[in-house]
């Protein structure tokens, strides 16, 4: 099967869906052009080059560069979705949600509900999240728990290129607002990705490792960390299950409980701030519905409750790492 990067997989999903459905448009800052280019011939395709090449296929009618105003991007995209298009809006860094969150929280997420089911909003918001790029406190956050908190928005965190393509296609085809979150560190990771279009349904977590001694629950970039730790532990004679949540809303509760009950020892690895995050939510779920299966207290690996540091040594210390996950796992093994 062809090997593609996460970035290429996302680009291919956009290309194939735009070819298939002329209602799909891309809206965002620099999605066509980009700093230092004339925009037309050798366009960058966004800050990290994800939409590169789409302009020449679809032109400026469908690859729409906007002014630097997230409020306008989300307003335009929500309205376009309400009136029949299927927009893919880019919120360059999720950290910028602050200026456009009313459009998402109080408008887009509520349309279907408040218009009695008569309005559909097939909007996909693509955004970058996560630390590790030495980009400081305002360009390194995860923030997905703020979206999972809001009913009416689907939240998708692909952990690998295969899932990125299939989940983005599903996001575009979905008739509700979806926030599709891309971890910056994953863009250059690669894996098997079929050339054909395919979609992965929301709400189906994926088992990436299977074992008997311990269960890791992970999302986005932390999946790879847990996979690597599971491989390390296997050499030491302990086998671990790794569950990749893939979507946070909807959440695959059945698989979470299944994975938890398989081993009774659980480590949840979440890169977002530790209060009211995905790890705490899942921990509560397991305690409520499957307490008797637990053989040890549930462990979480998260950053401390501080902004993401700019100092490289501090940022390394801040983020969940294989070493930290391994040590925590050994505490309960």
């Amino acid at each position: 099967m062809p090997i593609k990067t996460y970035r290429e997989a996302i680009n291919e999903a956009l290309l194939q869906e735009m070819k298939k459905d002329e209602n799909v448009v891309v809206i965002g800052e620099d999605v066509a052009g980009g700093a230092g280019t004339n925009g037309e011939q050798d366009a960058w395709g966004g800050v990290l080059g994800v939409t590169k090449g789409l302009l020449k296929h679809f032109g400026r009618e469908r690859i729409i560069d906007t002014p630097i105003t997230e409020t306008a991007i989300m307003g335009m995209a929500s309205g376009a979705a309400l009136t029949g298009l299927r927009p893919v809006a880019e919120l360059m860094f999720v950290d910028f949600m602050g200026v456009c969150f009313d459009q998402i929280l109080n408008q887009t997420a509520k349309f279907r509900y408040m218009f009695g089911g008569k309005a559909v909003t097939p909007l996909t918001i693509r955004t970058m999240y996560g630390g590790g790029l030495r980009a400081a406190s305002q360009h390194s956050q995860c923030l997905y728990p703020m979206f999972t908190h809001v009913p009416g928005i689907k939240v998708v965190l692909p952990s690998n290129p295969y899932d990125a393509k299939g989940l983005l296609i599903q996001s575009i085809r979905d008739n509700d607002p979806v926030i599709f979150m891309e971890h910056k560190n994953l863009y250059d990771t690669s894996g098997d990705v079929p050339d054909e279009s395919y979609s992965i349904p929301f709400g189906e977590a994926n088992f990436t490792r299977e074992g008997k001694d311990l269960t890791f629950i992970a999302m986005g970039q932390t999946v790879e960390i847990c996979n690597n730790v599971a491989d390390t532990l296997k050499k030491e004679g302990k086998t671990c299950t790794v569950l990749d949540l893939r979507t946070l809303s909807p959440l695959d509760e059945d698989s979470i409980l299944e994975a938890a009950e398989e081993t009774g020892k659980i480590v949840i690895v979440d890169e977002s701030y530790p209060r009211c995050n995905v790890a705490t939510d899942i921990s509560a779920l397991i305690c409520q519905k499957s307490f008797d299966s637990l053989k040890a207290g549930i462990k979480m690996v998260t950053p401390p409750h501080t902004p993401v540091p700019f100092s490289p040594p501090l940022e390394d210390l801040y983020l969940p790492s294989e070493e930290k996950v391994l040590n925590v796992a050994k505490e309960i093994l």
């Binding site: 295969y162 395919y198 979609s199």
Partner: peptide, 8 residues
């Protein structure tokens, strides 16, 4: 099997 079924 699911991967295959999910291809368009």
């Amino acid at each position: 099997v699911l991967k295959s079924l999910r291809i368009d």
